[in-house]
Design a protein around this nucleic acid. Structure first.
Lengths: 194, 194
DNA sequence: GTGCGAACCTAACGAGTGTTCAGTAATAGA
DNA sequence: TCTATTACTGAACACTCGTTAGGTTCGCAC
């Protein structure tokens, strides 16, 4: 139907935009650049999207929803905090690996969202981080983790490691995302263990 | 003398530019924005700098030189690889903490350098990373570190953690940079140890 | 064959971009 | 007092920006 075709074309636009934003950054990417990538004129883009920012908005909030979903599943699990933390890390990596381009945009370009979208985005982000912090707290309380660790430092180090992954991970590499997540989780969780 | 006053004013311009670039990104920062921050007109900036990119160039390459210097000192030390790695991490953190603003620009905005400066910058970066890789190799060879670790993964995780620090570290916080470096080094090195 | 909607076009808008240029006021050294 | 230098200015240049208006083409449904 029309809406399917429409969505499909719109998604093409958004995917190409994600590639462009990743390469050059949002602010340095022009609508004419994007149009050229698609083989059309800049004005034609506006048949599919409302504005440049709408593209960024969709990219950022779609990724945020994926991360949320992944963590939802982990929190339902029973078991030690270290296992939950590991699975949280693995899930995060898998979500990123599913779309490295969008992940890079999500991470580096979200600041170009205008208000109030930026505020909304940052709230989602803080919420996500706090849920990881709670898992670490749980591990500290039940004696799995060192009790003298700085929780903010720990959780920020964690996210730093995870969020830079799209910068250096080669999707054609021999390391598959699952094993990557496993290894990363090992490295990071071991650092916390007593 | 003239040159001192000139340098001083030029440095003021560059410092304010660093703040601006950090907040809004290089591409989204205009010379008129920068001028306004300094209370002058945009045209007046060109009495002090040759171009917008010259500012970015100076910021990026000055930081690169600082990182290099710090690692030079570490490499001269004798002792176990884990100690060298720790000191490398602590040094890196201290260089960043000395100028968080410039560090953030160094990390996030270097890609807006034009050629051949971008190529030069990336070469410096690869070199720096490889020197850390060599320390890890040393630790694997002499049995300090797990031998099954993926070196690329380890070193990239390391840099990810370090390089995001300017994003969340609050210079008014109670954690002083030295202790921050110490804790970070502990966390990351423990993950590698046998 | 008529109508419709998706996809695209050309042309243009007002605003903002980095940068240049000629000129001015202030200050310091001779 | 004259001179040179520094810091700055307003005006302008040649672009580029995101976006809009109005219109064309094409294929499908009835």
């Amino acid at each position: 139907m029309d809406s399917v075709i429409n969505l499909s074309r719109k998604e093409q636009v958004i995917r190409k935009a994600a590639e462009l934003f990743r390469e050059k950054g949002y602010a340095a990417s022009s609508m004419r650049d994007l149009a050229q990538k698609l083989g059309i004129e800049a004005a034609s883009l506006y048949s599919h999207i409302k504005s440049k920012e709408e593209i960024l908005h969709q990219l950022c909030f779609d990724m945020a929803a994926e991360f949320r979903k992944s963590l939802d599943a982990v929190e339902k699990q029973k078991g030690p905090a270290s296992e939950k933390l590991k699975n949280g890390i693995i899930g995060h990596i898998q979500v990123m690996a599913k779309d490295l381009t969008a992940s890079a945009v999500f991470m580096n370009e979200h600041r170009h969202l205008s208000q109030p979208h930026l505020r909304d985005f940052l709230l989602l982000r803080i919420n996500y981080i706090n849920r990881f912090k709670a898992i670490i707290d749980e591990g500290v309380k039940n004696g799995e983790f060192k009790e003298h660790i700085d929780r903010k430092l720990a959780v920020m180090t964690l996210f730093s490691s995870l969020n830079w992954m799209p910068m250096w991970y080669d999707p054609n590499s021999t390391i598959v995302p699952t094993s990557l997540g496993q290894q990363l989780a090992d490295m990071l969780v071991t650092g916390l263990r007593k």
